[in-house]
Amino acid sequence: MASIHQRDLLLTGFVWSAAALVIGSFLWLLSDMLLQGAGQLSWDFLTAETENAGRAGGIAPVLVSTLLILAVAILVAGPIGLATAVLLSEFIAKDNRIARAIGMSIDVLAGVPSIVFGLFGMAFFSAYLGLGFSILAGGLTLACMVLPILIRTIEEGLSAVPDEWRKGAAVLGMSRLSALFYILLPAAAPALAAGLMLGIGRAMAETAALIFTSGYVDRMPSSLHDSGRALAVHIYDLSMNVAGGDANAYASALVLVIMLIIINNIALMLANSLLQKRISLA
């Protein structure tokens, strides 16, 4: 019995230390970000031009480029993702061979490393289609990258809509088109929004896929054909290639993480509101 008791104690000790280690490292990372980044953070930092390769000044052009890249990615991936999700959840049976082939290729796409998306984007959008280093090329590359997360989240939202609603619509003689637009999509709206938010979050955190597609230029972009530096690329460049850039790298990292936390929380709230709706229906 003593040995069993000892084993229990040992495991308890290991499990609690593992948790303490995870919490400790998290707080360490968080405190460094706050301590080294919060000092630089100000309204001016967000609204001023970058100066001296990013050592001085703010991140206004970088923020604008980031938003433009995101806008391109979401405007392209959103409709394709939505339509694919609707097809998979409403129009073909789950065990259908086409459905399985589509599903599998989406899962494979989700596993492709971001540097490979970068290589592809450079070879296809920048070189083959002649878009060069541009916000357009970067945004399109990210559109390919966020497709799987959009499709899977929206698909899950649609499959959570009770089947009675579809039957009800059919009984009323609604076409599937109107059932889709007046019943299914509104019912799954929180999942659509959550999917978009998750896609935006994933795209915003991306660096490797953007270095060779949207590039490094830190001037204010004047069109989608200009090269534009995303916030994540800015952090990379400041910390690796610019001596004395660490302080502003941390401040930019703090901005990035705060935006990501806000986006993730919105996604979580939207997903939960969908759950609430289902509970109140039951």
């Binding site: 990372l29 970000m33 955190a205 660096t207 660490d246 993480v257 990501l260 936390i261």
Partner: peptide, 14 residues
């Protein structure tokens, strides 16, 4: 959800 570039920055400086 923390971006890899932020992990990299922290690793490099700490």
């Amino acid at each position: 959800g923390i971006p890899s570039v932020v992990f990299g920055l922290w690793g490099l400086t700490v």
